[in-house]
Design a protein around this nucleic acid. Structure first.
Lengths: 199, 199
DNA sequence: TGGGTTTCATACCGTTCGGTTAGAAACTCA
DNA sequence: TGAGTTTCTAACCGAACGGTATGAAACCCA
């Protein structure tokens, strides 16, 4: 198979541009024209390479989860439950207020509510967030078996609280609230976590 | 002015139906057809009575703020800062998990991200949430002058933390997380607040 | 009963949506 | 150079969008 006419775009770069557009405007707020313009990809190529809006969105979410959510996996890998929580809260605030990315979190900005025909989009995003919550809960269960957390702590509630706070920070960041302000809120959440696990 | 043909809808009831549609599907995810169907109002009447999608949305937000957010004003009216926080956190969890209303909060579900041409919608919603946050901050400033809160507490940070948690609960509720689960998370936030103000 | 008035249902407006087709353009290889 | 392949530009598709015009239907009042 020899090579035909060369592409005018790089597939990975184009995908990253798509991430930013969906991140800022959400799934339904993004049109194919928005995408082709930002990605530097013409319409037929977009369909040939990425396969439609819904398929592209799935690839975008995967790319985002792998790159822009790496901090969450790093936090879970911390040695103690408290360090897990601290690092997640702190790095989350940073992640939702980066200068070179849209404010907030794609998982929420992508579509917290959708039209009836796109309910699967918001449901998919919600399910993936809850999967992340479960990862934290499992991590805290492990901490309990290790004696790192008191035996009577509720790992699910702790994980939920962390996710709740991170989601609130994402909403706040998207509203334009600066990083320093969110850090003060994260510090309060950190104190709460500390108070819950030291008895 | 005699009366012409009678309307087939009640204006207030129709508005409440509109609230629910926007609440579930967001501003951009809601079509005029969705609205006319749910409201029982034909298209020309919708434009005559409510004046277009954007105008209707403004009325919907106002109706929602007055009725479905009354609990927040009631919380601010509590006698002490701790009671303000407790009541807000508890009633918020209830409000975002009502059986006869959509899960979550209209202020967030309405449109946390929008297309470029509807940025004003998400900005308007974000601004109104921050206005609510300021109301809490002012309330906590008052509490400091009353000696109800330690003089060195940060009223803005406390208010922000409360709003962050409530937003997270709204996102969680919209994802289908049951009330009881959110109450455990709210209890942790309550402990955090208590720990911050008693020294 | 017959104006006057208001809302009804329906058809229509231009635009944009996601998605596709047609053919010219740019490359590799022989 | 010329066949083969791939991506390019550009026009096009039916459907749905927000919004409006038209005329019939249902009321009050005289």
């Amino acid at each position: 198979m020899p090579g035909g006419r060369p592409r005018t775009f790089d597939e990975d770069e184009a995908l990253e541009r798509a991430v930013e557009v969906f991140w800022r405007q959400g799934y339904e707020g993004t049109s194919i024209t928005d995408l082709t313009t930002a990605m530097g990809v013409n319409k037929p190529s977009l369909y040939a390479v990425f396969g439609g809006k819904a398929d592209l969105f799935r690839r975008v979410i995967a790319h985002y989860a792998e790159h822009d959510m790496a901090y969450a996996r790093a936090a879970i890998a911390e040695p103690t439950a408290l360090q897990v929580a601290q690092r997640f809260l702190r790095d989350n605030v940073v992640a939702v207020t980066l200068d070179d990315k849209p404010n907030g979190c794609l998982s929420i900005q992508g579509g917290v509510s959708c039209s009836t025909e796109n309910q699967d989009v918001s449901q998919f995003l919600a399910a993936s967030r809850l999967a992340g919550e479960k990862a934290f809960a499992d991590r805290f269960r492990l901490a309990i078996t290790r004696g790192d957390l008191p035996a009577d702590t509720d790992p699910d509630a702790l994980a939920r609280f962390l996710m709740v706070v991170s989601e609130g920070h994402a909403i706040h960041a998207a509203a334009g609230v600066p990083r320093e302000s969110l850090q003060k809120s994260a510090a309060i959440a950190e104190q709460a976590f500390k108070a819950m696990i030291t008895r």
